[in-house]
Simulated scan of single mutants.
Amino acid sequence: MRIGVLALQGAVTEHIASIEKTGAQGLPIKRVEELDGVEGLIIPGGESTTIGKLMRKYGFIEAIREFSGQGKPIFGTCAGMIVLAKRMAGDEAGHLELMDITVARNAFGRQRESFECDLEIKGIADPVRAVFIRAPLIEEVGPDVEVLTLYKDEIVTARQGHLLACSFHPELTDDYRLHQYFADMVEDSMTANL
């Protein structure tokens, strides 16, 4: 099983290391045609506006929409969640507009307000360590979106079918269980598509 990490910006090598702890193969995705070689895709954190511009420049917007249209799982972390969202708080335009969520950028404040905490995530037995860095949050979800985690009554992890999103950086800890959750989604989708 091969899981790609969009390698335009962000903690690509850390995501690949977490993927490989699950037993899957992690691959950096730098060109559109490389999407054909993976069964799932992670869009990492970074700066969402920059990621969006680079995705447009290199043709990734339509390619990832097509990837999603095939039912292949996509996991957006931090800025990656913003990129996946259908709507942005305020009137800012979205990027991929795939996941039926409304996202507020930098909802937890600036870099100096970064923090770590333990979160209960639906579908994972024990609390997961989460690193929040200039993190967004989910303000609203559509009817098909399942909320997986709340932090102080704010939505920070959600799933809609083959789409998974979180506000934090799961790749920056030694705890790879959220990557395992995603790898299980990828495996399930591969089985369903046989």
Rank of each mutant, 00 (worst) to 15 (best):
L8G: 01
G10Q: 03
A11G: 12
E14S: 11
I19D: 11
G23L: 10
G23T: 11
E33C: 00
E34L: 01
L35H: 03
D36V: 02
D36F: 09
G37F: 09
G45T: 04
F67Q: 01
F67W: 06
S68H: 11
G69A: 05
Q70G: 05
F75H: 10
T77K: 03
C78D: 11
A79T: 00
I82L: 07
L84Y: 00
A85Y: 04
A85M: 03
K86Q: 14
A89Y: 10
G90K: 06
G94N: 12
L96E: 02
I101T: 01
R105A: 01
N106S: 04
A107E: 06
S114Q: 10
E116M: 12
C117F: 00
D118V: 00
L119C: 05
K122D: 05
R129C: 01
V131F: 01
A135T: 02
A135E: 02
E139Y: 03
E140P: 07
V141N: 08
P143L: 12
L148T: 06
T149H: 05
Y151Q: 12
D153T: 05
T157R: 01
P170T: 09
D174E: 15
D175A: 09
D175C: 08
L178G: 00
L178P: 02
H179G: 07
E187S: 13
D188Q: 15
D188E: 15
A192S: 14
L194N: 14
